[in-house]
Design a protein around this nucleic acid. Sequence first.
DNA 1: TATTGTTATACTCTATAACTATA
DNA 2: TATAGTTATAGAGTATAACAATA
Lengths: 176, 176
Amino acid sequence: MDELQACAAASPCSPLERDLGYTLGAVFRAYVKAAGSVLADLPGGPRGFHVLTAAVSGEAASQTVVGQRLGVDRTVLTYLLDDLERAGLVTRRPDPADRRSRQVVATDDGRRVHAEAERALAGIDTSVLRGLSPAEAATFRSLLERVAATLPGDEPATVESACEAADAVAREVARA
Amino acid sequence: MDELQACAAASPCSPLERDLGYTLGAVFRAYVKAAGSVLADLPGGPRGFHVLTAAVSGEAASQTVVGQRLGVDRTVLTYLLDDLERAGLVTRRPDPADRRSRQVVATDDGRRVHAEAERALAGIDTSVLRGLSPAEAATFRSLLERVAATLPGDEPATVESACEAADAVAREVARA
DNA sequence: TATTGTTATACTCTATAACTATA
DNA sequence: TATAGTTATAGAGTATAACAATA
């Protein structure tokens, strides 16, 4: 019916493939799988690489900051850092200004590993984005960066409208 | 150094925010979190919704097909479908052509719930993409759909080059 | 008292293996 | 023999709670 009309102009035509959540998930899964195979020997895999990135680029003023930035629980981050430290890629040192918190610093070895991993991941990027021309891929990445930089904090849009929507769904489920 | 040069023109300037894996993950996490709050009462949450979408749109010829499409293990899908069936949203019926496999069909209630959930999720979509103009959001979605439709199957690019890259990283880690 | 990080525990989610039934 | 689905079990990953050190 009007589903067909909506799809008429679009390239991939299936309700699932036009769902933002599904496409995001599918691409993300594919990326993690590919990156994971390339970073298999790096402690923590893709996430360990992101921690290493934060350390290398001096964005790891404290473990709390890193955890929030990367969306990993602070307790999980402890184990992750233990592994990275054991591998000699990062070190933890108390912040002179606040000795409760610890700065995460990349070692020289960590910097080398990070550089090599970055090279390897470049190939993964182009592999995942293979369906796009170079120009399109650049556009996609820049838009994605903008989206990531402007994500809703903890209040998803207006909290009220989200609750209303949730209630509306809940009512339908309850009726079923 | 040359990191600064690379960032000079870009809007968000941090090595992490220019990493495809990080930005994909950040956006995906934000989406799942927001969608999860709105679909809290739907069995399976966002993933349950995707299963329901497949059922509603007749893309659920068998559980195996659904599982592969959605990236969920067949054993996990069994439980998920149990919940959705218990809630009266879908039914399973043996495929007449091959009685080993079972088709997943949405009930009338399932269709109603799906429609309501779709409405609710539209708000989530715009919330997550709030950093983009409507035109940019449309571009982003269309590029994302293309990427999702052309993902590397099971062979990440060329298998050899992926292995070489993995070995190169492994060597650096071993040296550290 | 509040916060950073660590540890120990419990929980959720997911995958592995064994089983039934159809083919 | 091979495949679709189910079940039970084990494993990975994650969060919760209690603790030590510092503010």
